[in-house]
Simulated assay, not measured.
Amino acid sequence: MFIKWTVIFSLLAILSKTAESIMCYQCNSTDTDNPYQCAEFMTGSEDIKPTPCTNVYNAQYCIKFTGRHEGGLETIRSCSSLDHGNYCIYGSQRGDQLDYRSCMYTCSTDGCNLATSVNTSFLIKLIPMGLLAKIFL
């Protein structure tokens, strides 16, 4: 009986969310005060670190946008309360000789908007916990 309750409380502790917000990289590649700190491809050696998303109500996601924005090419890393998905669009403006690509990446773990890859989903993390519960319950 003790093992059963231990497993149940462990699963609840793992699955519960704390009141703290997600921590994301928050930067803009056009920031002249911190040049080169928010490039499209970051290596992790930059001076910036993930920070709490306290400025976005109910922030649950980190996002990375890269592409054409406000007349130039830009990379923005930020927080969001919405899951914007992962997609790229291609287009051009009148007079452009080349198409451009704009991409949006959304993820839901601390610091996950460093790169373009998206971390494993919550469901994949849930599978081992479900197997443990089945074994012990």
Rank of each mutant, 00 (worst) to 15 (best):
F2W: 08
F2D: 05
F2G: 15
I3A: 15
W5E: 02
W5H: 10
W5Q: 02
T6E: 03
T6N: 06
V7E: 04
V7P: 07
I8S: 14
L11E: 06
L11H: 00
A13G: 10
A13L: 08
A13S: 15
A13T: 14
I14W: 13
L15H: 08
L15K: 05
S16I: 10
K17Q: 09
K17S: 13
A19T: 04
E20P: 13
E20G: 15
E20F: 13
E20L: 14
S21V: 15
Q26R: 13
C27D: 02
C27P: 01
C27V: 10
N28K: 13
T30R: 02
D33K: 13
D33F: 08
N34M: 13
P35D: 04
Q37D: 11
Q37A: 00
Q37R: 04
Q37N: 06
C38A: 09
A39N: 04
A39C: 05
F41S: 15
M42A: 03
T43H: 10
T43C: 12
G44I: 12
S45A: 10
S45Y: 00
E46P: 03
E46K: 01
E46D: 13
P50A: 06
P50H: 08
T51I: 10
T51L: 09
T51R: 02
C53V: 00
C53K: 01
T54M: 07
T54G: 03
N55P: 05
N55A: 11
V56I: 15
V56A: 00
Y57E: 15
N58K: 02
A59I: 05
Q60K: 04
C62L: 05
K64I: 05
F65N: 00
T66I: 10
T66F: 01
R68S: 00
R68K: 10
H69K: 06
L73G: 12
L73N: 06
E74W: 01
I76N: 00
R77Q: 07
S78H: 14
S78V: 09
C79W: 01
S80V: 14
S80N: 06
D83T: 00
H84E: 07
H84S: 12
G85A: 04
Y87S: 00
Y87H: 01
I89S: 02
Y90C: 04
Y90E: 03
G91K: 07
G91Q: 14
S92Q: 06
R94K: 12
R94F: 13
L98T: 13
L98Y: 09
L98R: 02
Y100H: 15
Y100S: 15
S102G: 14
S102K: 05
S102Y: 00
C103D: 01
C103R: 03
M104W: 11
T106G: 10
T106Q: 03
T106S: 12
C107I: 13
C107Q: 08
S108Y: 08
S108I: 08
S108F: 01
T109G: 11
T109A: 09
G111V: 08
C112P: 00
N113V: 08
L114M: 10
A115P: 00
A115D: 08
S117Q: 14
S117M: 09
V118H: 12
V118Y: 09
V118T: 06
V118P: 08
N119P: 14
T120C: 15
L123R: 11
I124C: 15
K125R: 14
K125M: 06
L126S: 04
L126Q: 01
I127M: 10
P128H: 11
G130I: 12
G130E: 11
G130M: 12
L132R: 07
L132F: 00
A133Q: 07
A133R: 09
K134M: 11
I135H: 11
F136D: 03
L137A: 09
